[in-house]
Design a binder for these strands. Sequence first.
DNA 1: ATTTCATTCCAATGTTTATTAGATTATTGA
DNA 2: TCAATAATCTAATAAACATTGGAATGAAAT
Lengths: 217, 217
Amino acid sequence: MDNARQIKNLLYEQVARIGKAVSSPKRLELIELLCQGEKAVETLAQESSISMKLASAHLREMRNANLVETRREGKNIFYRLADKGVADFWVMLHSLAEDRLVDLQMALQHIAMQPNDLVPNDRETLMKMARRGEVVVLDVRPTEEYLVKHLPFARSIPLDELRQRLSELPKDRPIVAYCRGPYCLMAKDAVELLRREGFSPVHLRDGVAEWEAMASR
Amino acid sequence: MDNARQIKNLLYEQVARIGKAVSSPKRLELIELLCQGEKAVETLAQESSISMKLASAHLREMRNANLVETRREGKNIFYRLADKGVADFWVMLHSLAEDRLVDLQMALQHIAMQPNDLVPNDRETLMKMARRGEVVVLDVRPTEEYLVKHLPFARSIPLDELRQRLSELPKDRPIVAYCRGPYCLMAKDAVELLRREGFSPVHLRDGVAEWEAMASR
DNA sequence: ATTTCATTCCAATGTTTATTAGATTATTGA
DNA sequence: TCAATAATCTAATAAACATTGGAATGAAAT
């Protein structure tokens, strides 16, 4: 084999290491979870409904590709994304998938089928409305994730507590609920609950990672 | 298994279809080739040093993921990227790989090790200089690829013809050579040839795909 | 109509990968 | 020191994938 060919093979093999790391649905789910902040293996395993052993194996794959890093704290080992670029890449990957795969488009329609026309989708306008208090931006993820990072002006009520804390929310203004991203169902559940209770909820597909990826271009 | 879990699995599996499509080095090489324009299977197979059967199989994978489309013309079937977004994704993927993988960084240093300080790396300045004629931007890819798309102000001399056409190039100004992208070795070879012949060549890592991806942000 | 060429389809091979179970390491708390 | 916990490592198996050869398709040239 000629020399140029060997060099090329080497280069593409390296890039394919990243491709392999994102070729498994469970690893993608783990990446999305890690976009919300660092987490222990057990947490990651629970949230993604797999065994700790399997989670550990998948995480090792990703660490070999240098997409994630670890930190030990007592008995726990915390994983985090190695770089913001990984979160941006996740956003681009799932956006591309949404553009290209009809099956995915259909599955997603199933999740957020209400017309979101009440609240504009573009970021500046939404933020302007949130700043003026014309809408309430609601983060329904667990509190820890909210504390790591959240959308500007967002208020935190984790989905578990939402039913008990409905009185904190206004009925006269739209409530824009978001969660981890388009594949997380928490905002969907929150919207359904709020609608039953007489609020005017809107489902925002984006999570923090999507928001930031959009901001950095 | 609960319903939410089933939905999530479905969603991540869909995204992983794209991940799988880019998890093989040969498929990545094919994508990079297709970034230069549509090509027949045989061309793709030759350029990537694989059998036509194997190329066909890889291309089918990518067509299943809707990343490429086909067109028949006589005996040939031409493949092309299904969307500009695929080229942008390729650029982001290899950029991420270059950021994360030390092995890849080292392999790339080996390719372009000269200090490129003569010519600024930022696009606006380079274009300004090209417009004024202070540098010559040289496209060393095959003519067909140049005709599909090329950098602004670029002149085309395919690598094969370069030795015979040296008289077309100036010795008093830097020559900025580029090819298909950072993993293509044609520009490297061109720079080495030009340097031996007494020109002042500079290797531009980016190809058309990288250039356009950068422009669209 | 037959041959040729480019390509795909199908079947068979060896090689990776996902997943699970069992043993092992590192840390904490008793 | 000993037990409990969190996580990893190793080994094993089954499923998925890459690769190759042979047969089949579809358009073009003779």
